[in-house]
């Protein structure tokens, strides 16, 4: 049973037994992994604050034969987002990105882009306080990395260039259409909203934040609809995001 060491982000924890925690974490080297941290809920736990949700950590774990869950032996904090989570809005935003990551990323499939996206989003929420841009960026890139993002540049039916034009997207997420080809019941996007989405695909979160980029709600809602369609269930935290003051 060799001990593995990896950089990771804690996605979610559940109480287990008397004082243990079941931990879902995104390992940079191993992908999404679930494991048990013995005694993690006790006051003198060696894990301290390292297993709080979205903590960026270095984690040591080993696998046991015939067991699905790994055993977490040690965890050291690299970067904590606990202080930022004291704000209710930020707490909801952190909850949403954790829920999406857990739902979308398959177990044991490493994805460095997904890891970097999650970490960059956590840092942006912490440093900016505002959650609209980080959430919009995270959902857009989750859809992109999942391979479900339709082309935003050309009409999915006739191929017409959509630069400077409004677009219409159908609920199946199969594409963005021009005015002439829009399917019945499709939702409209303004030319500005599509331009913002294209900009978000080219720039880093830091640059977008520095440029004061504003993400229209229509875009974020569309990306979240696509995610819900893919995972075949509603996101629990989404309703709380809509109610957040």
């Amino acid at each position: 049973m060799p001990v593995r060491e990896s950089e990771a982000i804690i996605l979610r924890t559940y109480p287990l037994g008397e004082g243990d925690r079941l931990v879902s974490f995104l390992s940079r080297a191993e992908g999404r992994v679930r494991g048990v941290a013995r005694g993690a809920r006790k006051p003198k736990s060696r894990f301290g604050a390292s297993l709080e949700p979205l903590s960026h950590v270095r984690i040591w774990f080993y696998e046991r034969e015939t067991r699905q869950l790994v055993r977490i032996s040690q965890c050291e904090l690299i970067e904590s987002f606990l202080e930022a989570q004291r704000s209710y809005n930020a707490n909801v935003a952190f909850g949403l990105i954790a829920e999406i990551s857990e739902a979308v990323l398959p177990e044991r499939e490493p994805s460095d882009p997904a890891f970097r996206l999650l970490l960059a989003t956590c840092r942006a929420i912490q440093s900016r306080g505002s959650i609209a841009l980080p959430i919009g960026y995270f959902t857009l890139w989750t859809v992109r990395l999942g391979g479900w993002l339709p082309s935003l540049d050309h009409c999915a039916a006739c191929g017409r260039d959509l630069a400077g034009q409004p677009g219409w997207a159908n609920t199946e997420g199969s594409g963005v259409f021009c005015r002439q080809c829009r399917p019945p019941g499709s939702r409209p996007f303004s030319a500005e909203a599509l331009a913002t989405a294209r900009t978000m695909l080219r720039g880093s979160l830091e640059k977008l934040a520095a440029a004061g980029t504003r993400v229209p709600d229509e875009l974020t809602n569309y990306w979240m609809d696509l995610i819900e369609q893919h995972i075949e269930r509603k996101l629990t935290v989404r309703s709380m995001l809509e109610l957040a003051p």
Partner: peptide, 9 residues
Amino acid sequence: ALSPLQGIG
């Protein structure tokens, strides 16, 4: 406690 992941607001 407030827990968005568990739907507790």
